[in-house]
């Protein structure tokens, strides 16, 4: 190792020990940090982020092939050991789901009857945009993913991202062909939710732990949420559609309700970005306004896109 450390001045930096440049750059990065604190949404920073994401997305896609193979091999080793338990659990779950399916079919029929009885106007349909996860921040505090769909696919900032289990997060940056999803566990994540059955509305706050907490803003009555109750998006603020499954209440931690997320971030591979036009509470009264309702819906698309992250 005695050869190591001798200065041959062959590197990029001609001046060894350029303390001055080093200290200067430290100052520059501290200034950058301070300025990005106070103007996180500044267009220069935003453009830089989106540009880098767009440029990096082909490289990340290239990476993600072999990586997912390695992940699959490493993951399946664990699966071999508990294949019997998993099988048993899955069979039980299957039986339970079959009952739910029957109930759902029955309910669908009933609802169809009700919808036929009343002049029911269906809310605008959400249009999902499918995307693959090509990047993930493996950082202790920043929790986000990069998906390979962007503005070219109609992805916009503020839209909800779901996978087969439930809500994954929300779009915070939309580049041309890639966008960033802020996960529910990130410290900056704030999602309006309600607890099914308890009739309480609140905000789901990420804190980098696996289980985010609900901080309540309004409670209709004194019903305490109990473990096992479902947590769904409330649609308050008009950013996310109402009723997306988020997780289940697990318990209380220092006055906050902890939520076990449905999303399993270690397995999230394919997601859907929900391009949702929020319905507007406009003079849609009775049948004579049916024509206006159409118009209101198109307006709603504009309104929803103007309501990005309010946190």
């Amino acid at each position: 190792m005695e050869f190591l450390g001798q200065d041959r001045r062959e590197g990029l930096g001609r001046k060894a020990h350029s303390r001055f440049v080093l200290v200067l750059l430290i100052l520059v990065s501290v200034l950058l940090l301070l300025s990005s604190l106070y103007s996180a949404q500044a267009s220069v920073f935003k453009k830089a982020r989106e540009g880098v994401m767009d440029v990096a997305s082909p490289v990340l896609s290239l990476f993600s092939g072999p990586i997912s193979y390695v992940n699959g091999v490493a993951g399946s080793v664990g699966d071999y050991f508990n294949v019997m338990e998993q099988n048993k659990a899955l069979r039980e779950e299957n039986a339970e789901l079959r009952q739910w399916m029957n109930e759902a079919l029955e309910l669908r029929e009933t609802i169809e009857v009700y919808e036929a009885l009343q002049g029911y106007v269906a809310p605008p349909e959400a249009q999902p945009i499918s995307a693959f996860v090509i990047g993930e921040s493996n950082d202790a505090f920043a929790r986000s993913m990069i998906v390979n769909a962007g503005r070219a696919n109609n992805v916009e900032v503020g839209q909800a991202v779901v996978d087969e289990n439930g809500l994954v997060g929300r779009i915070v940056e939309a580049g041309g062909g890639a966008s960033r999803v802020l996960l529910l566990t990130d410290i900056q994540s704030r999602i309006p939710v309600y607890v099914e059955g308890a009739n309480v509305e609140g905000i789901l706050v990420g804190n980098t732990r696996a289980q985010p907490v609900i901080s309540f803003t309004a409670s209709a009555d004194d019903l305490e949420p109990e473990p096992g109750q479902r947590v769904l998006t409330s649609g308050a603020g008009g950013a996310l559609p109402r009723g997306l499954p988020v997780g289940v209440v697990t318990g209380e931690n220092r006055g906050d309700i902890t939520v076990d997320l449905y999303a399993n971030y270690a397995r999230t591979r394919m997601v859907r970005v929900i391009n949702y036009a929020f319905p507007v509470v406009d003079h849609v009264v009775g049948d004579e306004d049916a024509g206006d309702a159409e118009e209101a819906d198109t307006d709603a698309a504009g309104v929803a896109s103007e309501l990005p992250a309010e946190d």
């Binding site: 200065d7 590197g11 930096g13 990065s29 996180a40 921040s137 920043a142």
Partner: peptide, 25 residues
């Protein structure tokens, strides 16, 4: 140190901030 000047280090860090979505700097 000649092979990794402070400017390189700065850009490596900046790229990491941009790619992982943390605060710049």
């Amino acid at each position: 140190p000649d092979y990794l000047p402070p400017l390189s280090v700065f850009f490596i860090g900046l790229l990491q901030d941009l790619l992982t979505g943390g605060p710049l700097g």
